[in-house]
Design a protein around this nucleic acid. Structure first.
Lengths: 235, 235
DNA sequence: CAACATATATGCTAGATGTAGATATGTCAA
DNA sequence: TTGACATATCTACATCTAGCATATATGTTG
């Protein structure tokens, strides 16, 4: 980029949008959407997002979007996803959006939604494509998405599916202590298919990423499963 | 992103920088850098990049950077890499850069460099880290990189390494016809380690991605290897 | 025509994964 | 107290893949 280009350029707005993902114990993959109360896309649902501030990094803007638009505070797994720069993605003008995704356990997700009267839980249909995705509310009714946010959510799902093969992102979606079968359910929800129970157990135990806490999952009507936790040092 | 945010925002510049990657027959991984003849970072080497135009998508800006700053025309494999938005990455002001990477065969890379008197071939040291990377010219002298471009190149290398596991990007770096051993050399250069010849052959033949052209690589002083090509339909 | 260098094919071994069955351990009801 | 029950956990075995060694094939070169 040369200085001589400066005169010819213009100044697009830059926003950050965040796909907050969680997996519920029934196996459904969910994200948090906020209802738009103004044009454009009034009365549709959109991802939490903010304009990037003058002295704010992109990562900081993502954290602010989570804090102010999704009531998520404290440590969260957040990672940059993709940058969307189509010409007419926002009717207000040329806006480039840097998309992020975040992963939280079910409990934190529920708390965040409860604190936000404008927010809704959106179930993500497992058949994600590159072109976008359909979301439904808890009653099963389709939610109309604003902007190109369907495409952003679809890309977030693709990303975590790929990431599961080489990174321990399943742990980000679980509480501190969990059984192996619960971890398996997380993987199945992300991948959208069933996994072999014994193979999964073997691979996880051999991975060295988890350790037995010595505790058991109580309150079951059958043999309780051992509770494991994520080895912090290995992280 | 709400309309009420508009007043509070400012307008950062948005640029696109492209890491043009190729692999030479000696196994070296190379990229094209342009000498900066102005401040900031005068007399250092930088990636080809342009400011994003008013009516230009990010992908189109990347194509323009390749065309005008790297003399690369026509079809190329180009993909978005990551967006860099640190506060002081450019001393001229707040500039957000959307990085792309492109893959071309050795021949096209050499032609592009030859057409550009400001351009230089930069060999990439295989020991890439997330923090950046060192590059050297053909004489082995270290090239000083401007901006955060060392970090961008490092991330490009990480990306293609990961991508090699599930996508046939090796073909983007080769001519239309190639021997299996030549394809293996590409993979070895990307991964930075030797591969087992027989296993590689078996896996490639079983992948269904390539087909025998019936031709042989002539001009060798030993048994000529079969030439394969990439199955277009499967792509 | 034989030496040579590399391509190509084949068989063996170790590790990872899918599957089936056996065993362990908690709750619950009689 | 005891046995049925459901799930957790373990063990054995088949299958598949990658790495490795060896044997064979096919060009060039003297």
């Amino acid at each position: 980029m040369d200085s001589q280009d400066f005169a010819k350029t213009f100044l697009p707005e830059v926003t950050v949008d965040v796909v907050l993902l969680s997996i519920r114990s029934d196996g459904s993959l969910v994200t948090l959407l906020a209802q738009r109360d103004e044009e454009p896309f009034k009365d549709t649902w959109a991802l939490p997002g903010v304009f990037v501030g003058r002295d704010e990094t992109l990562d900081a803007a993502a954290a602010r979007a989570l804090r102010t638009k999704a009531a998520i505070v404290g440590d969260v797994f957040v990672e940059q996803l993709f940058t969307f720069g189509d010409l007419n993605r926002d009717p207000r003008g040329r806006i480039v959006s840097v998309a992020y995704y975040a992963l939280v356990p079910e409990g934190r997700f529920a708390t965040a939604v409860a604190r936000n009267k404008d927010a809704v839980i959106a179930r993500i249909d497992a058949s994600a494509t590159d072109d976008g995705i359909a979301v439904r509310n808890e009653a099963g009714k389709a939610l109309k998405l604003g902007f190109d946010h369907g495409r952003i959510i679809g890309m977030a799902l693709q990303r975590i599916r790929g990431k599961l093969n080489y990174a321990p992102i399943g742990f980000e979606l679980l509480a501190d202590e969990f059984t192996l079968f619960e971890l398996q359910h997380i993987h199945e929800a992300v991948l959208g298919r069933k996994l072999n129970k014994d193979s999964f157990r073997r691979k996880m135990l051999a991975s060295g990423l988890i350790e037995d806490t010595g505790q058991r999952r109580s309150g079951t009507a059958y043999r309780p499963a051992a509770l494991y936790c994520f080895k912090k040092a290995e992280r």
